Amino acid sequence: MIDNFYSSPHEMTPLTMAVIAQQDENGSTRTLVLEEQEEYSVPHPPSKMINHACKFFGSSLRGRQDGTRGICGITHKAPISIDPTSGMYFFPTASPTSPKCSWIAHSHIDRINQGPGKQTEVIFRNQKSILLDISFGSMLNQVQRTAQYRYLLDNRIKYLQNHAADKAPEPFV
């Protein structure tokens, strides 16, 4: 099952840098998926892909958003962890209910630059770049909120891992 998940061309993996909303010629929302080594288009909106990826790891987009709210109080345009063990932390560029909402992988960002007008350039660690319809201030805020959320969740996980040995039940014989 896992091999099928990671080999399917329509699935998100730790190599996914962004899922970008695009309009096709009929006005329907599609997704441009940016991977470290390739890019391809999918006939589904980005938030649907994000929800599907969350479900693969035992939750849903709504569940991940609720988790973010519980950990650090972020309620709008909340960053999420699709899978914290593999570092899959993503944040939306707009309300996830908007057809213009794209999702960016926090760990793949190298830097962001002010773009023309209300746009922002995202430069990834592999030096690919994209121009998004989000103000530089909003993008900077999203990056910082994701870093805060990631720090808090990672610390919770580390705490549990460090204390699991202390409370581990005796093995069943």
Rank of each mutant, 00 (worst) to 15 (best):
89 Y>I: 02
165 A>P: 04
18 A>D: 03
42 V>L: 08
58 G>A: 00
117 G>D: 09
39 E>R: 01
60 S>T: 11
171 P>D: 08
10 H>V: 09
3 D>F: 11
33 V>E: 00
73 G>P: 01
85 T>A: 12
144 Q>G: 05
119 Q>K: 15
19 V>W: 08
91 F>I: 03
91 F>G: 00
162 N>K: 13
149 Y>Q: 03
147 A>W: 15
156 R>N: 11
98 S>Y: 00
39 E>Q: 08
44 H>S: 13
78 A>S: 14
47 S>D: 03
16 T>M: 10
41 S>N: 12
129 S>G: 02
26 N>R: 09
119 Q>P: 00
163 H>A: 00
149 Y>W: 00
170 E>A: 15
42 V>E: 04
141 N>L: 14
22 Q>T: 11
99 P>C: 00
72 C>K: 03
87 G>L: 06
25 E>N: 02
29 T>Q: 00
89 Y>V: 06
140 L>K: 15
158 K>E: 03
134 I>H: 00
156 R>F: 12
62 R>P: 00
107 S>A: 15
43 P>Y: 04
144 Q>K: 14
26 N>H: 09
169 P>N: 02
94 A>V: 00
44 H>T: 13
51 N>I: 01
64 R>H: 01
15 L>D: 14
161 Q>C: 06
30 R>V: 13
11 E>G: 05
161 Q>W: 09
164 A>T: 13
9 P>E: 00
53 A>D: 07
166 D>N: 12
20 I>V: 15
28 S>Y: 06
146 T>N: 07
64 R>V: 00
15 L>C: 07
61 L>Y: 10
30 R>G: 01
146 T>R: 02
112 I>L: 12
63 G>S: 05
124 F>T: 06
113 N>G: 13
127 Q>M: 14
172 F>C: 11
152 L>D: 03
168 A>Q: 12
169 P>H: 04
145 R>N: 09
60 S>P: 05
124 F>A: 02
126 N>V: 07
147 A>M: 11
170 E>Y: 09
18 A>G: 02
2 I>E: 15
128 K>F: 13
163 H>E: 10
131 L>A: 07
13 T>M: 04
6 Y>I: 15
162 N>T: 13
4 N>A: 13
121 E>V: 12
12 M>S: 05
89 Y>K: 04
120 T>E: 03
81 S>T: 10
80 I>Y: 03
75 T>Q: 12
30 R>I: 15
128 K>P: 06
84 P>R: 13
170 E>Q: 12
167 K>V: 14
8 S>L: 08
49 M>W: 12
112 I>F: 08
54 C>Y: 03
2 I>L: 14
16 T>N: 03
86 S>D: 10
145 R>A: 00
121 E>A: 06
133 D>A: 11
119 Q>G: 04
137 G>V: 11
130 I>C: 02
159 Y>E: 02
55 K>I: 12
142 Q>K: 11
117 G>S: 01
127 Q>Y: 14
74 I>M: 07
64 R>E: 01
42 V>T: 06
